[in-house]
Design a protein around this nucleic acid. Structure first.
Lengths: 219, 219
DNA sequence: TTGGCCAGTAGGTAATTAACCTATAACACT
DNA sequence: AGTGTTATAGGTTAATTACCTACTGGCCAA
């Protein structure tokens, strides 16, 4: 059984060295290459660097990890990637997932966790730090209330919710009026109040807000 | 150190018995109550059943797990809940998370995994089966292409994407025209083409589609 | 190289929807 | 009895959408 070839990308030499020595000591891994930043990594990989798993930081000077992953995918290289980061925000996680990252580990993770992530990804599975999973699940829960005071939730009336639901289901004002047995003018009034209450400027924004708030079970 | 009091809800006696005996054998748990379905569980809990963690099936006759959890939360009871289910669809997971479930375990999980979930939830953390995490992450990845042929992706032109992006950022046609140095009529044309191409009937539907397709990094 | 196709641009006209403001009945709450 | 909120809806004007048409500049294949 041969060792798993790992390629490290991080702008902090100290971190690279720490991971390097830990992985080499483990015995199951060998670090076949290191790069300071995305550009260097991309060059080395294009020049034919051979490895099994790429372990990369996200925030780096001269091409960040996101750009690196994007470029690698654009080059058509099917590479197994573990993102290593301090960022646990949904935006970054989503972005990396979209670009095809297979593992997402926080820098606060233990060395054991990094090893686990590399092993899982090497085997063709995915690995996410528990914190990452929690971030995502909280997000799914409806935008995580923990963001201090700001989340004054807007209380929509039953009728407003009905109207909003029908808007999102792509019915026209006329159709909504017909369905609810009210005048088109009333539908307009409800829409106006919805935009007013939620502070949005058009139906697109309102729809996305409703989606993120998870106001309706079916969307 | 006292045992963790578990309450089981599942319409299959066999499953309840299996979990019951496994938990009791473990030594760290004691099953203090069992119910056939949601209604029975709700009655027993309202009548004062005392437990630490509620382990409930989702699909059941006479009040399913989702409704049970919803009702419990509406009663203002702060209960630690692990959902036990065969369903691994994003919709169900989202729904349960929204209602405040703390753990989500698939029925295909091992007994060890159920134990782990109960322990984690008892300690105030969350637990999700790896399959559940994967389902969610795949969803976040952009709707999981694996749904066979159907996903004919609509190729939007660069200009159309720009316009769509600005719509979602809630700019009016006039503002979009100004930003892109084109006429309002052209913006209208692009919008028309966007609706036509994607098969939507209004901007709300289009916005949600764009969101689900994850066309833009910032939303 | 000439035709065909598509992206991007934009106008005309009618219908729909949004943006203002106003108004009234029904109900709850004090 | 008075006050507030919800749901209802009209009038007027502005903006957006719905159809239809049309021209330019690439690009690609016959």
């Amino acid at each position: 059984m041969s060792e798993i070839k790992v390629f490290l990308v991080d702008d902090h030499k100290m971190i690279r060295d720490a991971i390097d020595s830990y992985l080499e000591d483990d015995g199951r891994f060998t670090v076949v290459g290191q790069a300071n930043h995305g550009q260097e990594a991309l060059n080395m990989i294009k020049a034919g660097a051979d490895f099994d798993v790429l372990l990369t930081d996200i925030v780096m000077p001269s091409m960040d990890g996101i750009e690196l992953v994007k470029q690698l995918k654009e080059e058509g290289l099917s590479v197994k990637i573990v993102a290593l980061t301090m960022l646990s925000e949904t935006q970054h996680i989503k972005k990396m997932l979209n670009y095809g990252v297979n593992g997402y580990v926080l820098k606060s993770a233990s060395q054991e966790e990094i090893v686990k992530a590399i092993l899982e990804v090497y085997e063709g599975r995915n690995y996410y730090s528990p914190e990452v999973t929690n971030t995502i699940m909280d997000h799914l829960r409806g935008g995580k209330q923990t963001k201090s005071a700001v989340s004054l939730d807007i209380p929509l009336t039953k009728r407003e919710k009905e109207v909003l639901h029908l808007i999102i289901k792509e019915f026209s004002n006329g159709e909504i009026a017909e369905k609810l047995f009210i005048s088109v003018r009333t539908v307009e009034a409800h829409k106006r109040n919805l935009l007013e209450k939620t502070g949005h400027k058009n139906m697109a924004g309102l729809a996305i807000w409703a989606l993120e708030k998870r106001l309706f079970d079916d969307i």
